[in-house]
């Protein structure tokens, strides 16, 4: 249990020291949001378009940032040492935790930017939006960690990552868009009960399956 935090802390402190991944990620978000601003001009569009665009930006920033956890180990050649000092489940949970913190941070940045820059992006029902936000981050983090583990062994890491992750993340993104739309329209939380249940089951399935198969990826 302690080792999970050690791995998390190791990644966290090296990230804080270097910070280029984080800075690049924030710049990516700024660029993406400003592109949307430019393309919209002064037009106002329907709430579901905003809900969709919000999660699209989240998806692509996750795709550009979350693959680092295993790729960086592979680049520095520290995979072997890590596999000697900790068992696979611990490694996976440590990396998962790091990705979770990163995605929470990035998503909060994106959400704040959206609220300041788009007047129409108004969440009426905060309960359902926040629930979707938390569950969605868990799901995105779980599937992107396991895909990142697969990708770290491949030759072309950057381009392959979104290709592999998109079909896996699509059900999650669709649900999140649905819930966000409903939250923006101010519908009660009981309206999106089924969607929230799907989100919970997605998270549970993805986390358990990832822990089960990670062992096979990690053992070289």
């Amino acid at each position: 249990m302690k080792k999970i935090f050690y791995i998390f802390y190791k990644d966290f402190s090296s990230e804080l020291r270097m910070r280029f991944a984080l800075n690049a990620l924030i710049m990516f978000v700024v660029v993406a949001v400003s592109t949307i601003l430019f393309s919209l001009g002064s037009e106002s569009v329907a709430p579901n378009v905003y809900a969709g665009m919000f999660w699209v930006v989240v998806f692509f920033s996750a795709m550009s940032g979350l693959s680092r956890v295993f790729v960086s180990e592979e680049e520095r050649g520290t995979t072997l040492i890590l596999s000697l000092i900790a068992n696979p489940v611990t490694v996976f949970l440590g990396k998962f935790l790091f990705n979770l913190v990163l995605i929470f941070f990035i998503n909060s940045v994106i959400a704040l930017l959206y609220m300041f820059l788009f007047q129409e992006f108004l969440i009426q029902n905060w309960n359902s939006f926040l629930l979707a936000y938390v569950l969605g981050n868990f799901g995105i983090s779980a599937s992107s960690t396991i895909i990142a583990a697969i990708i770290s062994k491949a030759n072309v890491k950057g381009t392959l990552y979104p290709v592999l992750a998109f079909p896996v993340l699509l059900p999650l993104i669709l649900m999140l868009i649905e819930i966000t739309k409903s939250a923006m329209e101010g519908n009660p939380i009981s309206d999106v009960e089924a969607e929230l249940l799907v989100l919970i089951s997605y998270d549970v399935v993805m986390i358990t399956a990832s822990i089960l198969v990670f062992d096979i990826i990690w053992r070289d």
Partner: peptide
């Protein structure tokens, strides 16, 4: 093989 399992789960 692992990817086919993960993708099937969705």
């Amino acid at each position: 093989a692992i990817y086919s399992i993960i993708a099937f789960l969705t």
